[in-house]
Each structure stands twice: as structure tokens, then as C-alpha cells.
């Protein structure tokens, strides 16, 4: 990896780790959401760095544009009257650390040993090839994800209805 790319990588990694740390530890949920958005921007930068601009743009559109707004709605609709703070959780932290560190160490060892990198500079795949794959080889997955999105939307609307006798 060249020096400039490595510098960009370190910058994006710092954004990801910093944002993710804020997202999981800040007791204020709105600040946690801002951290999550920062981490998503870092991941989009990683996509651009590995020569996948289409996925990077989709990351910005879907995650930063849509999902963060959904989570913001969830925060606003559930905010308790006395501020949206979570109570301090000191007892669970060590257990949570163990639960997170174990799979990371195991999978890190696997990644370090098992996967061999063969391509130095990732080749660019045009949107044309992606579209052909989406409608040709992987058409079933494309149709299935649209059905999943439709069902999720219908289910959310159904769950959101208040029953008339309750209201």
C-alpha cells in the first residue's frame, strides 16, 4: 500500500473507531447516533479507498441518509420525559468487554492466517457489470431483497396501527 493510501486508511480507521466508541459508550443517545453516523462515513471512505465507489455512494445514501433518520425517529419517539440518558452501567462493562474481545481475537487470528491477498491494487468494476450481475446471475437475490423490504414495510405499518378499542 502506498504511503498516501495508508495515511487515508489511518484517518478513516480513526474516524471509524472514534465514532464507534462514542456510539456504544455515550449515555446520551443522540450523541451516540452522531458517533454512528461518523463511523458510517468512515466505512464509506474505506469503500472509496478499495476502489468500490458505487458501494461507497450507496453506503452514504442508505446508511447515512436513511437509516440514521430512522434511528433518530426511534430516539425521539421513545425519549422519556427526564432526558434521554441511559443509566450508568458499570457492572456489565467487564462482561461486555469479554463478550466482544473473544470473537474479535478468534476471527482476527483466522483472518491473519487463512486469507492470502493476491491482488495488490483492486481493479475497478463498473456499474455496468454490477447491473448485469444484479439482473442476471444474482437476480434471485435482487428479487428476494425487494420482497423482504416490502414485507418489512407492510409489517411496520401493521404494527404501527392502534387497535380501535384501545384508542
Amino acid at each position: 500500500m502506498e504511503t498516501l493510501a495508508f495515511l487515508a486508511y489511518v484517518l478513516y480507521l480513526a474516524i471509524i473507531v472514534g465514532g464507534g466508541f462514542v456510539a456504544v459508550t455515550n449515555p446520551n443517545l443522540v450523541r451516540a447516533l452522531i458517533g454512528l453516523v461518523a463511523a458510517m462515513f468512515g466505512v464509506a471512505g474505506m469503500y472509496f479507498l478499495m476502489n468500490a465507489p458505487f458501494v461507497g455512494l450507496m453506503q452514504l445514501l442508505i446508511y447515512v441518509g436513511a437509516i440514521s433518520v430512522l434511528i433518530f425517529f426511534a430516539i425521539m419517539l421513545t425519549r422519556p420525559p427526564a432526558g434521554g440518558e441511559e443509566r450508568a452501567t458499570s457492572r456489565r462493562r467487564p462482561l461486555a468487554f469479554v463478550a466482544a474481545a473473544t470473537p474479535v481475537v478468534l476471527l482476527g487470528a483466522v483472518c491473519l492466517r487463512a486469507f492470502k491477498q493476491t491482488v495488490d491494487v483492486p481493479a475497478e468494476t463498473g456499474i455496468k457489470e454490477l447491473g448485469q450481475g444484479l439482473l442476471g446471475t444474482y437476480g434471485l437475490a435482487f428479487e428476494l431483497i425487494s420482497v423482504v423490504l416490502l414485507v418489512a414495510m407492510a409489517g411496520a405499518v401493521l404494527l404501527g396501527f392502534k387497535r380501535r378499542e384501545e384508542a
Binding site: L36, I75, P103
Partner: peptide, 29 residues
Amino acid sequence: LAGLALLGLGLFGLVQRKTLVGMLISVEL
């Protein structure tokens, strides 16, 4: 390594958060 960092942070948050919204943020990570 970046993916593993996100995995670790997400799992940590998933176990440690006390509200459903916080857990949703961790799952997105």
C-alpha cells in the same frame, strides 16, 4: 482489521446498552 473493530464495538454495545434504541445502534455497527 477495520471490520473487526466494528464487530468488537458492536458486540460490546449490544451487551452493554440498556435500551432497545442503543442496541439498534450497535447492530448497525
